[in-house]
Amino acid sequence: MEDEVLLTLMIEDLLAAEGFDTISAAHETEAMAHAAAAADRIAVAVVNLHLGRDVAGQRVIRALRQHVPNLPVVVITGFDSEAPQADLRGLGGPTVRLHKPGGYDELVPAVLNVMKQVRTGAWPEEGRRKTDYNV
C-alpha cells in the first residue's frame, strides 16, 4: 500500500521480478477493500504508514491481520522509528521496518525475511518492546 504512483510502480516491479503478483492501493479505503476481498490471496503486505493525507498504515495492518493473523508485513516509512506516527506496537508480527527513501534497495530481502519468519516461527526479539507482542 503506497500512495505515491512512481514508488508503487517501483515496488510492483521489484516484487514482480521475484515472482510475486501484486495488489496495490493508494488510500486507506482502497486498502481496506482489498484486505476484505483478497485476504485469502495475500501472502505478504508492504505498507507505507502515510497513505494519502492520513497516517493510516497502522489501521491497514490491523485490518489485514484481522483477516490473516500473523501476516508478514514490511512497513516503509519516512517517519523516524521514535516518532509517534511510526509506532507499530500492538500490531502483532512479524513486521520489518524500512526507512524511506533508501529502504527500497532492501525491499526484496525484507519481504523474503519476514515471510521466512512466519514459515519458521523465528521472529527476532531483539530491539522489541514487550508491548510489541500485544495483538
Rank of each mutant, 00 (worst) to 15 (best):
M1K: 02
E2L: 02
E2Y: 02
D3I: 04
E4A: 05
V5P: 14
L6Y: 13
L6R: 14
I11A: 12
D13N: 10
L14K: 14
L15A: 01
A16G: 14
A16K: 13
A17V: 14
A17Q: 15
A17W: 13
G19K: 07
F20C: 07
T22E: 04
T22S: 10
I23W: 11
S24T: 13
A25M: 11
E30M: 03
A33Q: 12
H34F: 10
H34S: 08
A35M: 07
A35C: 14
A36H: 13
A36T: 13
A37P: 15
A38E: 15
V44H: 03
V44G: 06
V44Q: 04
A45I: 00
V46I: 01
V46W: 00
V46L: 01
V46P: 01
N48D: 14
N48K: 06
H50N: 12
H50K: 11
G52R: 02
G52N: 03
Q58F: 01
R59F: 04
I61A: 03
I61C: 06
I61M: 04
R65W: 08
Q66I: 05
Q66G: 11
H67G: 13
V68S: 15
N70M: 05
L71S: 08
V73R: 01
V73M: 02
I76P: 07
I76R: 09
I76N: 09
I76D: 06
T77W: 00
T77K: 01
G78H: 05
G78A: 09
F79A: 05
F79Y: 13
D80H: 10
S81L: 04
E82H: 11
A83E: 04
P84V: 00
Q85W: 00
G90H: 09
G90A: 04
L91C: 05
G92P: 07
G92S: 07
G92K: 03
P94L: 00
T95P: 04
V96L: 05
R97V: 00
H99T: 13
H99R: 11
K100P: 13
K100C: 06
P101D: 01
P101C: 02
G102V: 06
Y104F: 13
Y104S: 10
D105M: 11
E106P: 15
E106D: 14
E106C: 08
P109L: 01
A110L: 02
A110H: 07
V111F: 05
V111P: 09
M115H: 08
M115D: 10
K116P: 08
K116Y: 06
K116D: 11
K116L: 05
V118H: 09
R119K: 10
T120D: 13
G121E: 06
G121C: 02
G121H: 07
A122H: 15
P124E: 00
E125D: 08
E125Y: 05
G127M: 05
R129V: 06
R129N: 09
K130N: 08
K130E: 10
K130F: 09
T131M: 08
T131E: 10
N134C: 04
